[in-house]
Amino acid sequence: MERLRRAYGARTAHLLLLAGCFAFAGYVVDRVLQVPYAWMIGVYFVAAAVLHDFVLFPFDALADRLLRRIRLPSAHGAAPPLVNHIRIPALLSGLLFLMFFPLVLGLGERTYRSATGLGTGPYLGRWLLLTAGFFAASLLLYACRLVAARRRGSGKMEARSG
């Protein structure tokens, strides 16, 4: 038993759990093979993991790195950092785009119209307005913090973004 454990690298229960997991997954695959375009379901399933790990993540990380490189002019040492005031509205806007881009870009226009009788036209404008609103609110908040920081003088550093 101990030898098995050492060769395997974890407790026997771990092996049983994962064996059960793959057996069940195998059954699901067997069921999926009964349906039309089963191979395509498999491709999308694996692509979902790959797209996230190797496309979306590097893209986000790179965009964030670039943003952090920008040296923002700050005449006062006490000015709160601007980075999160740009990053957070950008993140919100990007998230909404990621979740709703088929509507925003009208990619499902034909099916949407035959189901609802309406077009996807308004969604682009709504998303753009929401984005503008996020940035406006964030920069307004930043302006308030900047004014507060200046009033307090350059001594304290408490008003940092959180």
């Binding site: 349906v35 375009y37 509507l103 990619l107 099916t111 949407y112």
Partner: peptide, 10 residues
């Protein structure tokens, strides 16, 4: 829910 079907499967 967005009626976007970039696939052929059900």
């Amino acid at each position: 829910v967005e009626y976007f079907y970039p696939w052929k499967f059900s």
